[in-house]
């Protein structure tokens, strides 16, 4: 059965979708994070071993993804607060969305070196 088409929403709809997706991703990260931090109660060695795994380049890339998700969720969250409480927020939501994206791109560029530097050297040699 041929399905109906996807609704062609604009900034508002897609920012909401991205907000949900990043929110769920962050939620699952918190599970893993609570487990790895709780390992210190098992034994400091177990904790160190786990953290050692995190030096893997793949994990670095995942961490960069985590930063991307948290940054978007936080910045768009501020936009939503403005839409909720600032009288003119609903009128300027599109402009605010693009401001959010601008800040997000700048911060992601800034986070690239500190987070990916180690992984880059690991993979390509220094």
């Amino acid at each position: 059965m041929p399905a109906g088409t996807l609704y062609r929403g604009r900034e508002g709809m897609w920012s909401w979708v991205a907000h949900r997706v990043t929110g769920v991703l962050i939620f699952f990260f918190l599970f893993a994070h609570v487990i790895d931090t709780a390992l210190v109660r098992v034994s400091p060695e177990a904790y160190d071993e786990t953290i050692e795994i995190y030096k893997n380049p793949i994990v670095s890339v995942m961490e960069y993804g985590l930063v991307a998700a948290i940054l978007f969720h936080a910045l768009n969250g501020l936009r939503i607060v403005a839409v909720d409480f600032w009288e003119k927020g609903p009128r300027y939501q599109k402009q605010m969305f693009w401001i959010v994206m601008g800040i997000w791109v700048v911060l992601m560029a800034g986070a690239a070196y500190p987070i990916l530097n180690h992984a880059f050297r690991e993979v390509f040699g220094s």
Binding site: Y7, G9, P90, Q93
Partner: peptide, 9 residues
Amino acid sequence: CRTTFNCTD
């Protein structure tokens, strides 16, 4: 309401 603004558009 989740303020997706589809209605306004």
